[in-house]
Nucleic acid binder design. Structure first.
Length: 878
RNA sequence: GGGCUCUUAGCUCAGUUGGUUAGAGCGUCUGCUUGACGUGCAGAAGGUCAAAGGUUCGAAUCCUUUAGAGCCCACCA
């Protein structure tokens, strides 16, 4: 036992006093380092590596608390738990950040060149890249810090390159001149998934194009007037009677004065706009398709920053796309060719990172082939793995989203015109142009030039689940990992691709269970965002309430698959609970100063209250394990919460006080030792959720050795034989009597300090229950007899076969008592009438299971008896 | 246009395979310095389970439709 003097321990729990202390202790003792150990079952969580550009958000808090809960629980349950932390180089995000950072100092990326720029990136990474990971330590995460990984570590880098080379050699990676989503801010291609569509109020411009050799016009509608400079056709639906006679003719394109054909294509919707479409094959995805179908010229009118190039008339060259738009529209108006302008709501694709409208743009890029006929592809095995349940999603409904995406997947554009990232391992022969692709550069490197591009970030993080393990031996032991905890927003970016990578490179699933977290919103239900300023700084919250309180609150509020409405003040919930536990611990510790803790006596001198709490503990453990097995973390915490607060504190602690304050030292020892042992089990159950306070109390409750920790102690096992229904029934009976008396006291406004006398008419109350009733209901004299006569001026309650009378001579207000009784009578009558309705229904009696009918009958009987008694009591009162 | 999720007490949410009087936290009201805790204790009030219809002896729970909220996907200029 610790030597602390507990009367001096603060009444209120102060997390700041304990959290840093224990984190350092865990860290210094490397309690969470894992090595291959074939005598133990591995349990692995690969952390979703935060971007090195990121800041800690409430989303991280939820996500990492969940992972910590899983990993701590499995560790205590005897698994070789291994939670691998790390960070993602975040190619485009970091490059943007560093570029801006340098620009502020007047340094231009292009001017300093690739190598110099990369030095700045690494410097930046060293300085800021570990911030989130460091901040997470405040949360108490039990990561294996010796295994921290970065997606551009040397060995990880090699792994990414090797994956590229392998896929290239298998023909699954190819190079092509294609239309891609172009981010003009970053001057790079991006993948379909990096495009965010925003609804904007735009315009629809109607332009008249003159049909060559006639006075006729054909009117086309467009949301992007400037692209007309690249038009190479006008298309109509082949069945459109209005335009049939024009098919095959030409129009003269205004401004550029180019003659372009009018052609027929099924793609065109007769009903929309004018039924005639301008075709710009180089700047629109659909037009690109049409251009291919009709072998149209592709005229690219933009530079890589979305300014116009020399393919447009001189006076429109080298200007921003929106500037050109204005000028084109003005020119049409001037020419009398602007038919009309309509307001139009449209969706515009924005670059996720650059936050500018993307441009469909033709360029040479690297693609990864996703699906192939015959199923020898990346997608098919990944679909199967989820279909046949080898990988499970929680909540399950995300599987539909996954399947839908996988079944409609398009080839993945993996090249980025950036410098920060994994450089594509392809060299082009300076003379022949031949492609050399390998993990090592060509021997005669002087004859080659390497591809300038780097890979999409996700083309490195998709290997995370296995690339975090460096040796064959480790991969054999730790792979597949067990649980992935991540947001549903990266189901396509990351989860799906990791499954593809795992199935392809490791020939096995990357993880067994995927837990999709909730989205944290503010109290009004809005998404947390920097611009709204509604996102609390988690570190501030931790400072104010403590990490345990924050963890508890977030989990308590986050049911599986539901959004969470969070506001800082909700952490009071967790803080109050921490304080409650703290004080329960204080209570035990204070008693330890006068009472000897003796493990020999742990199972001695048990009464029904002890049997009851032990039964409740085991039942709680059973329910807890079931909830955790089903990934119902939110449910699990509520189960523990209720056990600790309602069962242990509200009832058990109150019940042991009389014995603790008695005069039999051996009984006192037995009771306290048992109470501590149950409390320790409760602390262990709670530890994955609130690691700091549970460690502090666990360390105080007994003498521990250096390096000991509740976090590596054995998780309590369920002992079903100790689940004792009869003790629970007996306890319920006693609780009901106590509650009934408390109810009378409350409603009659009797001060808690005022003791009352009570009479119980019953033959089922046991002698040993009397003390508990007297103590907890604050009864002075308790008279129990089956033949008791009620005193005139007394308040009454009826439950089961028990009638309770509280003589309140001089205190009782008969009207209040009458109302109380009448209310109760009313309630019973309502219940009885609903039961009678059921039982008088012959179909119910004949169709419902016998036990259900029997239950209803018993209810009816009990209630009727109670009603009769209540009515008599009311009668006597008058 | 397709898909997913949600609608239960003033607020935020539980409610397992249909079967006690639909629960919890916060908030509200009443009382309380009861020798762990006022970040607490005891008691109370508060719900026609979004609406309609159906299946069933029985529906918050299953089915259909409707209304509303949110999210995701999709090439309508």
């Amino acid at each position: 036992m610790s030597e602390t003097n507990f009367s001096q321990v603060p009444k209120a729990y102060n997390p700041a006093d304990v959290e840093d202390k224990w984190y350092k202790y865990w860290y210094d003792h490397e309690l969470y380092h894992s090595e291959v150990d074939h005598s133990k079952q591995p349990y692995v969580i690969p952390i979703p590596p935060p971007n090195i550009t990121g800041i800690l958000t409430m989303g991280h808090i939820l996500n990492n608390t969940l992972q910590d809960i899983f990993i701590r629980l499995k560790r205590m349950q005897g698994c070789n738990a291994c939670w691998v932390p790390g960070t993602d180089h975040a190619s485009i995000a970091t490059e943007t950040k560093v570029t801006n950072f340098l620009a502020e100092k007047g340094i231009k990326k292009k001017e300093i060149g690739r190598d110099e720029f990369l030095k700045h990136c690494w410097q930046w990474k060293e300085q800021y890249g570990g911030i989130i990971i460091q901040q997470l330590k405040k949360l108490g995460v039990s990561c294996d810090w010796r295994r921290e990984r970065f997606t551009m570590d040397d060995d990880y880098y090699r792994e990414v390159i090797k994956a590229f080379v392998d896929l290239y050699k298998e023909g699954k990676i190819y190079r092509g001149y294609r239309m891609v989503n172009w981010d003009p801010a970053n001057k790079s291609a991006i993948s379909d998934e990096e495009v965010i569509y925003k609804t904007v109020n735009g315009k629809l411009w109607y332009f008249k194009y003159t049909v060559a050799g006639s006075n006729e016009f054909i009117i086309v509608a467009t949301t992007r007037p400037e692209t007309m400079l690249g038009d190479t056709a006008v298309a109509v639906n082949p069945d459109d009677e209005r335009y049939k006679h024009l098919i095959g003719k030409k129009v003269k394109l205004p401004i550029v004065e180019r003659e372009i054909p009018i052609l027929a294509d099924e793609y065109v919707d007769k009903e929309f706009g004018t039924g005639a479409v301008k075709v710009t094959p180089a700047h629109d995805v659909n037009d690109y398709e049409m251009g291919m179908r009709h072998k149209l010229p592709f005229i690219n009118i933009f530079n890589d920053d979305a300014t116009t190039n020399e393919n447009v008339p001189d006076w429109l060259q080298h200007q921003d796309r929106y500037e050109v738009r204005k000028k084109v529209v003005a020119k049409f108006e001037e020419l009398g060719l602007l038919h009309k302008i309509e307001d139009y709501q449209t969706k515009i694709g924005y670059s996720e990172r650059g936050n500018v409208p993307i441009e469909p743009y033709l360029s040479e890029q690297w693609f990864m082939k996703m699906s192939a006929s015959g199923g020898d592809d990346l997608v098919t095995p990944a679909i199967k793995a989820v279909q046949d349940g080898r990988i499970k999603f929680y909540p399950k409904h995300w599987e539909k989203t996954y399947f839908h995406w996988m079944e409609n997947i398009k080839d993945w554009c993996i090249s980025r015109q950036l410098w920060w990232g994994h450089r594509i391992p392809v060299w082009y022969h300076k003379q022949t142009g031949n492609i050399y692709c390998d993990v090592n550069p060509p021997k005669d490197i002087e004859n080659y030039k390497q591809d300038e591009d780097v890979l999409d970030t996700w083309a490195s993080s998709w290997l995370w689940a296995h690339a975090i393990f460096r040796t064959e031996e480790e991969r054999k032991y730790y792979y597949p990992t067990n649980t992935l905890v991540t947001g549903p927003d990266i189901i396509f970016f990351w989860v799906a691709r990791m499954i593809m990578a795992g199935m392809h490179f490791m020939k096995d699933i990357p993880f067994r269970d995927v837990y999709f977290t909730s989205i944290i919103r503010d109290a009004q239900g809005r998404k947390m965002s920097k611009s709204l300023g509604n996102s609390p700084d988690p570190l501030e919250v931790i400072k104010e309430y403590g990490a345990d309180a924050l963890r508890f609150t977030v989990i308590y509020l986050a049911p599986l698959g539901q959004d969470v409405l969070f506001s800082t003040d909700k952490c009071e919930l967790g803080r109050n609970f921490a304080n409650k536990i703290w004080n329960a611990g204080r209570f035990l510790l204070m008693n330890c100063e006068n009472i000897k803790v003796d493990k020999e006596l742990k199972d001695s001198y048990k009464d029904f209250a002890d049997e009851w709490i032990i039964s409740r503990l085991n039942k709680t453990l059973l329910q807890f394990n079931k909830a955790m097995d089903d990934f119902e973390v939110n449910n699990a915490i509520k189960i523990v919460y209720s056990f600790i607060w309602n069962d242990y504190c509200d009832w058990y602690v109150e019940m042991i006080k009389s014995r603790l304050y008695g005069d039999n030292d051996e009984v006192k020892s037995a009771v306290l030792t048992r109470a501590i042992s149950i409390f320790e089990d409760a602390l262990k159950m709670l530890h994955p959720f609130m690691p700091f306070i549970t460690e502090e109390l666990w360390q105080l409750l007994d003498k521990r050795n250096e390096g000991d920790s509740i976090s590596v102690s054995e998780f309590p096992k369920v002992r079903e034989s100790l689940i004792n229904e009869s003790s629970e029934l007996e306890m319920d009976f006693v609780k009901d009597i106590i509650t009934a008396i408390r109810n009378i006291r409350g409603e009659m406004n009797i001060a808690p300090s005022k003791k009352v006398n009570a009479m119980i008419k019953s033959s089922s109350v046991k002698d040993y229950q009397i003390d508990y009733i007297k103590k907890l209901a604050k009864v002075e004299e308790l008279n129990i007899d089956a033949n008791i006569q009620k005193l005139k001026a007394s308040a009454s309650a009826v439950l089961r076969d028990v009638e309770i009378f509280i003589p309140l001579e001089g205190l009782i207000d008969l009207d209040v008592e009458r109302q109380r009784l009448q209310k109760e009578i009313q309630r019973l009558e309502n219940s009885i009438s609903s039961v009678e309705k059921k039982l008088s229904n012959e179909k119910f009696v004949s169709n419902a299971p016998a036990e259900v009918v029997e239950k209803e009958r018993a209810k009816q009987k009990d209630w009727q008896e109670n009603l009769k008694k209540l009515k008599e009591i009311l009668e006597n009162l008058n």
